[in-house]
Write a protein that binds this DNA or RNA. Structure first.
Lengths: 147, 147
DNA sequence: CTAAACCCTAGACCATACTCTATGGCAAGT
DNA sequence: ACTTGCCATAGAGTATGGTCTAGGGTTTAG
């Protein structure tokens, strides 16, 4: 049993365009063609496509995915390089996740401020201070006159 | 005390280019100009730039940051809209973080496979199976003959 | 045998977020 | 005054990751 590009698009939630784009970028060296030149995806191909999606969805760049897929094509001898690539990626993702977590905590702080009963006063004070800071430095006040 | 664009670039680790780009995109409506038309950043501006960085680094799009900054300019009356914007963003980020976590677990699974003592055998078997699947479907074998 | 519904490629186009170049004004030291 | 080093804008260029169109072959149901 093989699948057409349309069937694979439905299964993977990638568009046909994206699948062809990935193929053009060398991300699908494992996909064979039938006698008419049509891509024929096997179940094994779908597994590799799933791996591809995991890498893509964790932010791996196309050039790195291409490299990984090239290593997969080479068979078991490339396992050490695959490990190196995946471990580097895993680390980059974890670093990124922690950075996002930290930044999101600042967003949470803002949300708590806005939720507070004194939010209007505090925000108003902040604005008044910013306004005065501009004026104290001889700068035009960029804030609109509140009506 | 005010800061030039160069000093702000050093403090924020954003490039001068990026700062000017953000201004052009309407992300810095709070920054005033001096008599020469030079941007003069105040300490209050730096706080807003910090907020901007938090939003950017959690993946908020420029158009949404612009909207948030426009709300900030309007003063305390826009607090409800700010909450709505930040909460929507916070949710999107959390969803994204969980998706990444799930996908990273699949990467971890691969890494454990490659770490296992039977890695070579298992990967070799996988490749042999994929190869047979192609042949069984009358397709060319895309894998290189291993030497 | 023909029409509908697929498939293909090449290459143009788009969105996003910068990054840089060209050109010129301003400011401070010598 | 002049050189150095900032500042400004407009607009071109780059990188990334798609998305779509044009032109053409294939397959399948009627």
């Amino acid at each position: 049993m093989t699948y057409t590009i349309k069937q694979v698009a439905e299964k993977t939630h990638l568009s046909i365009y994206t699948l062809r784009f990935y193929d053009k970028q060398g991300l699908l060296p494992f996909v064979s063609r039938d006698r008419s030149g049509y891509r024929a995806f096997t179940d094994g191909d779908l597994l590799l496509l799933h791996t591809l999606s995991c890498l893509k969805d964790t932010g791996m760049k196309i050039s790195d995915i291409r490299q990984y897929m090239a290593l997969v094509m080479q068979g078991p001898s490339s396992i050490p390089q695959r490990q190196q690539l995946l471990r580097a990626h895993r680390n980059a993702v974890l670093v990124q996740q922690h950075a996002i977590e930290r930044n999101l905590q600042e967003v949470d702080r803002k949300l708590r401020l806005y939720d507070s009963p004194m939010a209007t006063d505090l925000v108003g004070l902040e604005l008044a201070t910013a306004r005065e800071e501009k004026i104290a430095n001889g700068l035009p006040d960029p804030f609109p006159k509140h009506i």
